[in-house]
Amino acid sequence: MRPHLALIEDEPDFALMCRSYLEHEGFTVTWAMDARAGKSVLHESSVDLAVLDLGLPDGSGLELLRALRSTSRLPVIVVTGRGAEADRVAGLEIGADDYLVKPFSQRELVARIRAVLRRSQPPEVSAVIQVGSLRIDTAARQASAEGVSLTLRPKEYALLEMLGEAPGRVFSTEQVLERIWGAAWQQPATVIEHVYRLRGKLAALPVPAPRITTVRGYGYRLDP
């Protein structure tokens, strides 16, 4: 997917040049001309990184960065004028991930953005979860036990993967609904039905396999 950038910059010619180059390099760019519009973009859009000019017409970019850092770890690259060393230092102290001094080349901007995005990615986890004889391939979204495949519906697989990520940990019905259905207001019977079907498929395997245990009053766990 194309990374989504917020470009918060008040110089139209410079902003349009940046946006055109960044889009050509494979990014989606939303441009905001001032702090108010920038705040709206940062809070209402799914943004992967912000390029923030500290000199905005309706307020300090530093204040916008400080407000953002109170609620978010969104990667931010601050942009300053050549002589604004104090602003650069303040931006880094508040929590900017990098900075650029105008004028700068578009190639350098792209390189800085890609470097910050790489650093901000969570560490890679194994694509395979192994719980006893059970092997869950999260990339292929398939599960098997000693070579015997399980035929699972999408929600059954998601439930098995969730439990398999932390064997022995008890997950509540509300946690399962929020993670798999995206809404804790769904009926608990939905989880009970899927646990029942998944438990039956694990039990039907011709080899020993982990089992789903009901912890009365708490939820469910996967036992090797």
Results as ranks from 00 to 15, higher is better:
4 H>V: 11
5 L>D: 07
5 L>A: 08
5 L>R: 04
9 E>W: 10
10 D>E: 10
11 E>L: 04
11 E>W: 00
12 P>H: 05
13 D>F: 09
14 F>S: 11
14 F>E: 05
15 A>H: 10
16 L>W: 12
19 R>P: 05
20 S>Y: 08
22 L>P: 09
22 L>V: 06
28 T>F: 08
29 V>N: 09
30 T>E: 13
32 A>Y: 06
37 A>S: 14
40 S>V: 13
40 S>N: 11
41 V>A: 13
44 E>D: 14
44 E>I: 00
46 S>N: 13
46 S>L: 10
47 V>Q: 05
49 L>Y: 03
50 A>I: 04
52 L>Y: 01
55 G>D: 12
55 G>T: 10
55 G>M: 14
58 D>W: 12
59 G>F: 03
61 G>Y: 02
62 L>M: 04
63 E>S: 13
65 L>R: 05
69 R>N: 07
69 R>Q: 10
72 S>I: 12
72 S>R: 14
72 S>D: 14
74 L>F: 06
77 I>R: 02
77 I>M: 06
78 V>D: 02
80 T>Q: 01
80 T>F: 03
80 T>P: 00
81 G>S: 14
82 R>D: 02
82 R>P: 00
83 G>E: 14
84 A>R: 13
85 E>R: 10
90 A>T: 13
95 G>M: 07
98 D>M: 04
98 D>E: 15
99 Y>T: 05
102 K>G: 11
102 K>D: 10
103 P>S: 04
110 V>T: 15
112 R>T: 06
115 A>K: 08
116 V>G: 03
116 V>A: 11
117 L>W: 08
117 L>D: 09
118 R>C: 04
118 R>N: 08
118 R>T: 08
120 S>H: 15
121 Q>N: 04
126 S>K: 09
126 S>D: 15
127 A>H: 12
129 I>W: 07
132 G>P: 12
133 S>K: 07
137 D>W: 00
138 T>S: 13
138 T>G: 04
139 A>C: 01
141 R>T: 04
142 Q>S: 15
143 A>T: 05
151 T>C: 01
153 R>G: 12
153 R>T: 11
159 L>M: 14
159 L>S: 10
160 L>P: 03
165 E>P: 01
165 E>T: 11
166 A>I: 00
167 P>C: 01
170 V>Q: 03
172 S>E: 12
172 S>K: 00
173 T>S: 09
174 E>P: 01
177 L>F: 05
179 R>T: 14
180 I>H: 03
181 W>R: 11
182 G>H: 10
183 A>C: 02
183 A>F: 09
188 P>W: 07
189 A>P: 00
191 V>H: 02
191 V>M: 09
193 E>A: 10
193 E>L: 09
194 H>V: 11
194 H>A: 06
197 R>A: 11
198 L>K: 08
203 A>H: 06
208 P>D: 08
209 A>C: 13
210 P>R: 08
211 R>P: 01
214 T>H: 12
218 Y>S: 07
219 G>D: 13
219 G>M: 08
222 L>Q: 04
224 P>Y: 09
